[in-house]
Design a protein around this nucleic acid. Sequence first.
DNA 1: CTGAAAGCGCTTACAG
DNA 2: CTGAAAGCGCTTACAG
Lengths: 337, 337
Amino acid sequence: MAVTIKDIAKRANVATSTVSRVIQDSPKISEATKARVRKEMKALGYEPNFSAQSLANKMTQSIGIIMPEADVAVFQNPFFLESIRGISDLANEKNFTMAIVTARTDEELLVRVKMMTRANRVDGFIVLYSKPEDPVIDYFHNEKIPYTVIGKPQQYVSETTHVDNDNFQAGKDVAQYLIQLGHDSIAYVGADVSRTVHKERVRGYQAALEEANISVDETFILDPNFSITDLESLFHRSIPPTALIVGDDMHALPLQTMLSQLGFSLPEACSLVSFNNLSLAEMLNPPLTSVDIDIFKLGYQAAKSLIEKILDPKEMTKHIIVPHRIVERASSIRNSR
Amino acid sequence: MAVTIKDIAKRANVATSTVSRVIQDSPKISEATKARVRKEMKALGYEPNFSAQSLANKMTQSIGIIMPEADVAVFQNPFFLESIRGISDLANEKNFTMAIVTARTDEELLVRVKMMTRANRVDGFIVLYSKPEDPVIDYFHNEKIPYTVIGKPQQYVSETTHVDNDNFQAGKDVAQYLIQLGHDSIAYVGADVSRTVHKERVRGYQAALEEANISVDETFILDPNFSITDLESLFHRSIPPTALIVGDDMHALPLQTMLSQLGFSLPEACSLVSFNNLSLAEMLNPPLTSVDIDIFKLGYQAAKSLIEKILDPKEMTKHIIVPHRIVERASSIRNSR
DNA sequence: CTGAAAGCGCTTACAG
DNA sequence: CTGAAAGCGCTTACAG
């Protein structure tokens, strides 16, 4: 059997309550006896039993991470692992454990989440997606369960702590960057405007165009299911684009393929700027200019504010913005047309 | 406060011990009282307190997942998230939770693992990497802590349950596939033979060549740090390769880039076959023929056998082979030279 | 500054 | 088939 508080108490000649207070480094205990107790803990390799602590404390020191409904494509996007890595980093620091929650459907997810909270398995949740009318979010809200979301929540916005990029600004920065390179015909490809992230970036892009007195053309925006034909007609317009903003690095690869099939060679025919700065971006040919949104930090900050909230429920609601920066590579060049 | 076993007992007019037996669906309890108790559980939305169960049972229903030392590149490889998804799937099924363990160094990792086991935070571990003389593995082995490894363990092989592909066969299959396409000059690029996976695949590749009476040339094998110059000299040999086997889909993209910089157009100049069948493989141009090693199932099976071992320590050691299959795409064609 | 005792919410021999 | 009681390993008022 593992070593318990009793073993330590006996060997250090104190009561178990004293040992417990030493574990918590309570100021009520004299340094002398702390030292004595700690010596015994070290000697026996004592580690407080986690379940017993949780039961007595009503704290699990564990957070749930909610993934969007699992489909392979989503999981292969490094975004998730990278944000989990950020969460994990902070969690390890604070001695918290994480439990990843996945499910095939909304209902299944809700069942699991309810089970986990009722069973007191976790103290709170980080939600890695955001969508309208999410029953899971409603549940958290109604039951007053601590949670933070990565991205922009679509419910109870002002009351929920979330960490996000300034996506409007990111979209604007990218457009302005291209405008400074002399581009005045800039299309936006792979923008899933049903998602807030992309909607905001597109708004930023449009704002930049307006400020530069470039006319905004809605048909210059292609959703992520664009076909090679869509792309072709884009380039067959009277004024074809000289630069493309791509919604996600993951789209850049198929896009490049299509462009080369259409006979365009990059970056001469067209500059490319994308979002996320995955390691993929460096590998492409030409290497892709991409906006680094610091996914790791999104995860890290989400975990940080969730744990703060758990440890102190009076902690106020926060809205944290993680800065982005454009990582310039060979795919974007000065416009020569 | 959450609803407890006492609340249920009171409302169902039974002792708490009876409720506990109903939770466990013990055959000792009559169906009649089971039904009565269950009705109350449902009515109150009761879920047994997890910490209390763990404490009483000495079971945490939680498994640790050990990642290799964290560096960004590793984390961006979808392999890990995909195997975690497989683990997660089974874990959810069995009502287990997972805790991801990461660290920057070996020592830190060992400290965390010790802390977690001593604190009784998890019942066992899945190790997502394998390397020689791993102190973490030694610790598990000495303390008799259940663990399974994904890949081939390098210590206590026969005593440790592991799940892996038949990498020798996979390497052989790939080579034979290319041989059938008429290739007789096949190089192997991006093989990190310090890792068992790759060593075995290379052995399989060599075996296939021998069986086909093709001479085996060690200089036809390039490690993952190959430069464009290495590649160039490969193709400047008296008999240049007509096909390349690539160690990992992740290497295929930079490889393609280099080849195109050298003026080769694929697949005419050279066929390509790779491993892992990440979603990346489909996106490449030409789409990449790749060996699907079923990463999801590697994770799923690892979790399955670990949990079996946890629930029944007498469960025997297993060595599970997950089948692979070649997914043929446009990057590999019949040799025309 | 320290200890004895009750309690957290379960499980499980033991008795009937 | 069911219940009363002890126990899992901690924490925390309460008393001194």
